Amino acid sequence: MFKQSVSQIAAAGMGGKVAVRSFSVGAVIRSNIGKAPIRLGEGIECYTESIPYEFSKRFTKGSQVITLDKHIVVKGPKGVLRSIVPNFIEVENKDGLVSVSVPDAKDKIQRSMWGTTRALLNNNVIGVTEGHLAIVKFVGTGYRATIEDLANGKKQVVLKIGYPYMPALEVPEGLTVTSPNPTRLIIEGINKHTVTQFASKIREFKKPEPYKGKGIYVNDETIKLKEKKIK
């Protein structure tokens, strides 16, 4: 006795007519962010600089060796930013519009670096014109931060977050940290990566806990509170 297939059973139940069920397969939707041009404001410059071979960095991705031998330089009222990119990234500045492209958009590595480079370049353009900022909030009884001057002329952020000691972090070069009130810090700078990285370092000392919500929050960060387990 042979087993009946699903289609045969369906045909028997429908008077010999077989209902074909089609499975919809959606196409992969890509953001195509790499194709979007970036508009430069007045007084903003964007160009590329070659890095000599002996100073170029290299890394291996799969079977390919990627060479980072090019700088994308963005100049603006607030400063200058440089991003190191692979040799296959092409940047064109025409009539105040900067476009990023790659020779082979079907290549997985080139396609991924295409969008990444465009996003970094856009962050740099915003940084040299408007700047980036991160807001650090302290939630908890007695939690606060102060800014102190160091002997070398730099500043440091001192945290009071319930420990028997007070952690201190020196403010990195290129960043400005202000405190409108003891439970708030505003970190400003032209490099978005540096701004967010310093904010995350501060947050590491007291991550938000899920029961009382106490801790250090960055920007619009929220957490879902849990109920305490009662034995």
Rank of each mutant, 00 (worst) to 15 (best):
K214N: 14
D220Y: 05
I84Q: 05
L40P: 10
T146H: 06
S56F: 03
Y47N: 03
R144M: 15
K228L: 13
K3F: 13
S83Q: 09
P180N: 02
I190D: 01
A11R: 10
P180D: 05
K78D: 05
R203P: 04
T67I: 11
T129M: 06
K214S: 12
T176K: 09
I161P: 08
K192H: 04
F2A: 11
L185M: 06
G79L: 06
D95S: 12
E42I: 10
K108S: 14
R144I: 11
H132Y: 03
A145E: 04
T129N: 06
E90Y: 06
K57T: 13
K78R: 11
L81A: 01
K35E: 15
G131Q: 02
N219G: 00
V91N: 01
D220N: 09
H132E: 02
D95E: 14
P182L: 05
R30P: 02
K206F: 14
A151V: 13
F205P: 08
I72N: 00
A134I: 01
A134Y: 00
I89R: 02
K231Q: 12
A12L: 14
K207T: 15
E221N: 00
G26N: 11
G96N: 08
P172M: 02
V100H: 03
S24Q: 07
G13V: 13
N93D: 14
V136P: 03
S101D: 14
S24A: 12
K160L: 11
I147H: 06
D69M: 01
P182W: 10
P37M: 07
A145S: 12
V195H: 00
L133P: 00
Q64D: 15
R58V: 12
P164F: 08
K108Q: 10
K57A: 12
S31N: 12
I186S: 01
E42F: 09
E92T: 15
Y53M: 12
S83F: 05
K160Q: 14
I190Q: 00
E204Q: 15
I187M: 00
T116D: 00
P182F: 09
Y53P: 12
F88W: 11
Q197G: 03
V98I: 13
L120M: 11
A27F: 14
T183Q: 13
V139R: 10
Y143I: 04
D149Y: 04
D220R: 04
A105W: 13
P52Y: 05
I51W: 03
T146G: 12
S200F: 09
W114H: 15
V73P: 01
V125N: 01
M113Q: 11
E130S: 10
T116A: 06
L185F: 02
I9M: 10
G34T: 06
G174R: 01
K226R: 11
I216G: 03
E45M: 12
A12G: 13
Y53K: 14
R82G: 04
W114G: 01
T146S: 13
I216L: 07
Y143S: 09
G34E: 08
H132F: 06
V136I: 10
E221C: 02
R118D: 03
